[in-house]
C-alpha cells in the first residue's frame, strides 16, 4: 500500500517537473522576450516596477537556473503573470475557465455512463442478435462523427430550426451569479438571488446541447468497452460453472457477471477523461462556452503567449493529476493489481 503511494507520488512529481521544464522552455521558444512572455508585462513596465523597488524577482542578469527558480516560486505563489491581451491576472482567468470545462466534462461523463453502461450490457447479452447489431451500428456511427460537426448539427436543429435551446454561453448575460466555485450550477444553488428557479432553468437550457454533443461520442465509446468486457466475462469459465450449478441467467449476471465485467473497464473509463476534455474544448469554442478550451483558442488567435503558456501548463497538470490519481485509486482498490511493477498513464 505504502509502496504504491510512494511510487505514484514519485511518478507525479517527476512528470510535473518535466511539464514545468517544458512550460519554462516555451517562454524561450515563443517569439519575443522570455521575461515578457512569462509575466505578460512589457519590459518597460517591469523596469518601472523594479525601479519602484517592488520585488518581482526580475533579474535579467541571473542564469537560466535562477530564472527557473524564480519562475517556479512565482507559479507556486499563484502569481502566473497577466494576459497580454486583457491585462488580467492569468491565475484568476484560468481559475474561472477551468472549472467551466471540468463541469461540462463531468456532466457529459455522467450522462455517458448512465447511457453507455446499460446499453453495453444489453448489446453483450444479446450478442449477435438484432439489439447487438443495432447498438453496434449506432456506436460506429456515433464514434465516427466528428464532435464539432455533431455540435453544429445539434445547433442547426434544436436552436436555429426549432428555436428551443440557446446556442452560446453558460448563462444568459442578464443574470448575475456571483462566482464562488466556478461551477455554474453549484454557484447558482449557493447564491441568494431572488429568481433562483429561473436562473437555474436558464443554466440547464444552456447545458443541454454542449453536454449532449460530448456525451454522444463518449457514450458510444463506453458502450463498446462495456460490451466487449461483458462478452469476455460471460465466456469465462467461472460463469460457465455458475450456469452448470443451475443458476438462472439473472442470478449469474447479478452475482458474478456485473462486478467482474466492470472491474477491468473502470480504469479504461477513467482514461476516457482526457479525450473527453479534448472534445469538451472543441465543443466549447462552438458553443462559446467560457471554458479553458475557448479561452486557449482565443489566446492562440491573439498570440497571447503568456496566456498560452500558463493555460497549457494548467490543463496538462490537471490532466496528469486526475488520471494518475484515478489510476492510483484503482490500483489500491483492485485486488488483482496489488503488485505493481510500474506506473502507467
Amino acid at each position: 500500500m505504502l509502496n504504491i503511494l510512494l511510487r505514484y507520488t514519485n511518478l507525479i512529481i517527476i512528470t510535473l517537473f518535466i511539464l514545468s521544464l517544458l512550460s519554462f522552455a516555451l517562454a524561450y521558444l515563443f517569439p519575443g522576450d522570455p521575461i515578457e512572455i512569462m509575466t505578460g508585462l512589457k519590459l518597460e513596465e517591469l523596469q518601472k516596477l523594479q525601479n519602484q523597488s517592488v520585488n518581482i524577482g526580475y533579474d535579467p542578469e541571473g542564469g537560466v537556473l535562477s530564472q527557473y527558480g524564480h519562475y517556479m516560486s512565482e507559479l507556486f505563489s499563484g502569481n502566473w503573470g497577466v494576459s497580454f491581451n486583457s491585462g488580467q491576472p492569468l491565475y484568476e482567468e484560468i481559475m474561472q475557465s477551468l472549472p467551466a470545462s471540468i463541469e461540462l466534462s463531468a456532466y457529459a461523463l455522467t450522462i455517458s455512463l448512465i447511457l453507455g453502461l446499460p446499453l453495453g450490457f444489453i448489446a453483450a447479452l444479446r450478442h449477435h442478435k438484432l439489439p447487438d447489431y443495432t447498438l453496434l451500428s449506432f456506436s460506429v456511427v456515433g464514434y465516427s462523427i466528428p464532435v464539432f460537426w455533431l455540435a453544429l448539427i445539434l445547433i442547426l436543429v434544436f436552436s436555429l430550426h426549432f428555436g428551443w435551446l440557446p446556442l452560446s454561453g453558460r448563462l444568459s448575460l442578464i443574470f448575475d451569479v456571483p462566482n464562488k466555485t466556478g461551477f455554474i450550477l453549484i454557484d447558482i444553488l449557493m447564491s441568494d438571488i431572488d429568481n433562483k428557479h429561473a436562473v437555474l432553468l436558464d443554466a440547464l437550457r444552456h447545458l443541454i446541447l454542449p453536454t449532449l454533443s460530448i456525451a454522444i461520442v463518449t457514450t458510444t465509446l463506453i458502450l463498446r468497452i462495456t460490451r466487449r468486457s461483458v462478452i469476455e466475462t460471460l465466456n469465462s469459465e467461472f460463469i460457465q460453472a455458475a450456469y452448470a450449478r443451475g443458476l438462472t441467467t439473472r442470478q449469474v449476471l447479478v452475482r458474478h457477471g456485473i462486478r467482474n465485467a466492470l472491474i477491468p473497464i473502470l480504469p479504461l473509463l477513467a482514461m476516457q477523461f482526457p479525450t473527453l476534455l479534448t472534445n469538451a474544448m472543441i465543443v466549447e469554442t462552438i458553443f462559446s462556452w467560457p471554458g479553458i478550451g475557448s479561452w486557449l483558442i482565443q489566446a492562440i488567435y491573439q498570440q497571447d503567449y503568456s496566456a498560452i503558456q500558463a493555460g497549457m501548463l494548467a490543463v496538462s497538470v490537471f490532466v496528469v493529476l486526475f488520471t494518475m490519481s484515478i489510476d492510483m485509486l484503482l490500483r489500491l482498490t483492485d485486488p488483482k493489481r496489488k503488485k505493481v511493477e510500474r506506473g502507467t498513464i
Binding site: S159, L160, G163, L165, P166, L167, S168, G169, L173, I174
Partner: peptide, 21 residues
Amino acid sequence: KLIFDITPSSSLRLAKLITGE
C-alpha cells in the same frame, strides 16, 4: 439592464438573434 454581448462573428450574431439570445 442593458447588455452588449460581444460577438465578433456576424453569422453567430445572426444565429443568436434567431434563438432570442
